[in-house]
Write a protein that binds this DNA or RNA. Structure first.
Length: 594
RNA sequence: GAUUUCGUAGCUCAACUGGAUAGAGCACCUGACUACGAAUCAGGAGGUUAGGGGUUCGAAUCCCUUCGAGAUCACCA
């Protein structure tokens, strides 16, 4: 079945040719949804054609409308208001679309032959995951699904920052103050335990520095003299030199962290196909520096440090290799980008990383482009805004960080509380109920974080996030559960849907749902083009709302006309599939009862 | 200081990328369960899109400017 939008574009293009002898490519005819105060579902603005056609916008609208009415069977009505052409789709088309829809409602369809890697999460191993990571994880996971829905083969990657001064700090504090405690002995999750020693390090460091200052040292002198910091640096050196004791401790503590992370990943429902570890990648990229020097893209200073001049692009000179020959962050990222391409032959590579690193990625991508790397044009930084709290920024130093595990648990508890109050899940086993609370709590949390445009900074309001009414994940889940109840009842009543719909006339609220569902494909494409799962979150909310409106206005089983009953059951079924599919893309489950 | 992102109802967010009278949710007010699930629906109130100027048939969106907020600007990662 050809999509109505393509039909409209093609017909209008023909109209321009026949009426005004003007060539306009179908794809350049952009229809928009009609505002609900006007009749119709698809709108074309006619102002831009006034010059080409040599007529006033209103006249063009009328010409086009009449042409469509005559030549396009799928249009039943039109009206023109101040240069806007609003058209109504015929009953036949909408009914056929609903019955035989090729709207995609699962991931099982043709691949486009392209491969994309989505790197997300990418935590440091010195502290547990927090609210900011949750936005990252939900976005990354959803983005991967968006690409899948667009026919890409997707590799979800996690580049773990497992080495460096940060983990040495935790290790050192653990050695000094840890008394050999373990996750088992302390009853703490592994990542929490290691995080505890990172905090301890910072605390002791502050203490030592304060003493130094009170003994007459200046701030700067104190910074230099602090023994803890010096010890941490020594430890990093020992690590780099392969000191077995240090490596053993490093392995032990990092493994604790991974256990903790895995448990969190599992509970929030995200997963990865490939893990990279910086301890394996941090030396990469040096050959590329050589390559860059030899073909004149990089230059070397007298002190042997290597740089690239990006002033022509409005940026600065950027160091790519230190004077002592060691790598910096960007060297490693160059190497890793290369590695990813060589390992997977990816066409696109997405980095889900906060917008504080915008400059870094600008520089990175520019360097790779200047080096003429074949994958350079497929690189994209999915830059997302920070998550603020009502009290302001999250700051680990001030203890205002919202822990991911705690938050998930709170959402689950809240789901349990509200579900129990409503008393709608009689007959659920304890396990089923538990699963449901998780589903609903996570839905609320995920939806809350995903519905906002990723690029934008957002506010996390705890009170609002646990609201299950209105513009929320549970609202959409509820609509789905309602639909499931309808389908169950339809089965019980043995409603036959195998009837003829020839004389069926659709009600407005039915047309509204179908019109919404017509937008599914476009929405999924848009989400990929804009790197924004929020597009789907907003869309599926509209679908649910439109359905609820229909649900309240019309009865299904009280209806006397058998074809209406059958059609409404089928339409409910289709809507349910669309909702489930969209929620699945953004990582939210669709319970059948709640 | 330089670069950059942003500023929309009391609050949190939309606005199909330059289109119609700027829309939703929360909160507030009114109504609807002896209906197929009220985690719902219908309605009301709430706006000089931070301020000013410009571009044009038409601006929240593009340009200039003022004010305000964030981020980045290390031989850190």
């Amino acid at each position: 079945m050809i999509h109505i939008e393509n039909i409209l574009q093609k017909s209008v293009s023909e109209a321009f040719k026949n009426l005004y002898n003007t060539e306009i490519e179908p794809k350049n005819l952009k229809f928009q949804p009609t505002r609900k105060e006007f009749e119709g579902s698809h709108t074309l603005t006619c102002f831009e054609f006034a010059k080409k056609a040599g007529k006033a916008p209103d006249a063009i609208g009328n010409d086009l409308g009449n042409y469509l009415l005559k030549n396009c069977l799928n249009i039943s009505k039109f009206n023109v208001v101040k240069g806007f052409l609003n058209v109504s789709i015929s009953n036949e088309y909408l009914i056929n679309f609903s019955l035989f829809s090729n709207a995609k409602t699962n991931f099982d369809f043709e691949k486009n032959g392209e491969k994309v890697m989505v790197e997300y999460s990418s935590p440091n191993t010195n502290k547990p995951l927090h609210l900011g990571h949750l936005r990252n994880n939900f976005l990354g996971f959803a983005m991967a699904n968006v690409f899948r829905a667009n026919g890409f083969e997707v590799i979800k990657a996690n580049l773990i920052n497992d080495r460096g001064i940060h983990i040495c700090k935790s290790m050192l504090a653990y050695l000094k103050f840890g008394n050999n405690e373990t996750p088992d002995s302390s009853g703490l999750k592994g990542d929490k335990l290691v995080g505890k020693y990172y905090v301890e390090f910072e605390k002791q460091l502050k203490l030592e520095k304060a003493i130094l200052i009170s003994n007459g040292n200046s701030e700067e002198e104190a910074d230099k003299k602090v023994s803890l910091m010096q010890d941490a640096q020594k430890m990093l050196l020992a690590w780099e030199n392969g000191d077995t004791k240090v490596l053993a401790l490093w392995n032990k503590m990092n493994n604790w962290v991974y256990e903790g992370f895995n448990s969190t990943y599992k509970s929030i429902g995200v997963s990865f196909d490939k893990f990279y570890y910086e301890s394996n990648t941090y030396l990469l990229g040096k050959e590329m520096v050589e390559e860059g020097i030899s073909n004149g893209i990089f230059y070397q200073k007298e002190d042997k440090s290597v740089w690239i001049d990006l002033t022509a692009e409005g940026l600065d000179h950027k160091l790519v290799l230190r004077s002592d020959g060691t790598s910096v962050y960007i060297t490693q990222d160059m190497g890793t980008a290369d590695l990813k391409y060589k390992e997977f032959g990816i066409n696109k590579s997405i980095y889900v990383v906060g917008n504080e690193q915008d400059y870094h990625f600008n520089v990175l991508f520019l360097i790779l482009k200047k080096m003429g790397k074949p994958y350079a044009s497929g690189l994209h930084h999915l830059s997302y805004g920070m998550v603020d709290l009502p009290s302001g920024k999250m700051k680990s130093r001030e203890g205002t960080v919202v822990d991911a595990d705690d938050l998930v648990q709170e959402m689950k508890d809240e789901a349990q509380k509200q579900t129990t109050e409503l008393g709608k899940i009689d007959g659920f086993s304890a396990d089923e109920a538990e699963k449901l609370y998780e589903n609903i709590g996570l839905a609320a949390l995920k939806y809350y974080l995903i519905k906002v445009d990723p690029k934008k900074r957002m506010l996390f309001n705890p009170a609002e996030s646990i609201d299950f009414h209105g513009y929320t994940g549970p609202f959409i889940q509820y609509t789905h559960a309602r639909i499931c109840a309808i389908l169950r009842k339809s089965n019980e009543l043995s409603i036959s849907t195998n009837v003829s719909f020839e004389s069926l006339v659709l009600e407005n609220c039915e047309r509204n749902i179908i019109t919404q569902i017509l937008l599914l494909d476009k929405t999924i494409k848009q989400a990929a083009e804009e790197y924004s799962p929020s597009v789907i979150a907003n869309y599926v909310y509209e679908v649910a709302k439109t359905y609820n409106s229909f649900y309240a206005e019309l009865s299904i089983f009280q209806e006397k006309d058998a074809q209406k009953v059958a059609f409404r059951v089928l339409l409910s079924c289709l809507t349910g599939k669309v909702i489930k599919y969209c929620l699945e893309i953004i990582g939210i489950e669709s319970p059948e009862k709640m």
